[in-house]
């Protein structure tokens, strides 16, 4: 019979085999490593954070509202962020050509953009009622950047469509 130490060594050897096999059959894709490196490009020290306060896909998880379905919006998801003195409601709807992001600010804002996880951004126009639409947003995490009426730059927490 093997001693406990031998059994431990044997377990470690088997675990090492499994680790080697996992690296062959289920490696971290190169794109995931590249995205990780690029994530630091999203670091900015000049803004306030608008936190997620409601998410229709997380009903019952401690956030504000139950799942809400607009008419005909079978798969859309509604989120609300609050920060920098502004609230914004965001509706995410998948389309054939990427994601459609429809937003509504509670107060006046300027310079609104949809930022991606690689540091890139697409500017969007906000109308006089505080509404905006961004079409064809590619997959992956996004966040909104905007400036409140007192000139404060605000970014929302990251959201995964």
């Amino acid at each position: 019979m093997s001693t406990p130490v031998d059994a431990g060594d044997r377990d470690d050897a088997l675990m090492a085999d499994l680790r080697r096999i996992a690296a062959e059959v289920d490696p971290v894709p190169p794109g995931v490593v590249e995205a990780a490196r690029a994530a630091i490009l999203t670091r900015h020290l000049d803004h306030e954070l608008a936190e997620l306060i409601a998410d229709s896909s997380e009903a019952g998880a401690g956030l504000l509202f139950e799942a809400v379905r607009g008419p005909g919006a079978g798969e859309s998801r509604l989120l609300t962020f609050d920060g920098g003195g502004v609230q914004v409601d965001v509706d995410l709807a998948p389309t054939g050509q990427g994601l459609r992001v429809i937003g509504q600010f509670t107060g006046p804002v300027s310079e609104c953009g949809v930022e991606r996880g690689d540091g890139g951004a697409v500017e969007v126009e906000v109308d006089e009622l505080g509404r905006f639409v961004a079409d064809g947003v590619p997959p992956g995490p996004i966040r909104l950047r905007f400036r409140s009426d007192i000139g404060q730059l605000v970014r929302t927490a990251w959201l995964v469509p």
């Binding site: 794109g31 995931v32 994530a39 996880g117 995490p141 927490a157 990251w158 995964v160």
Partner: peptide, 10 residues
């Protein structure tokens, strides 16, 4: 891939 990237962003 999305979850990993989001975690780095957070």
């Amino acid at each position: 891939a999305d979850a990993v990237q989001t975690t780095w962003l957070r």
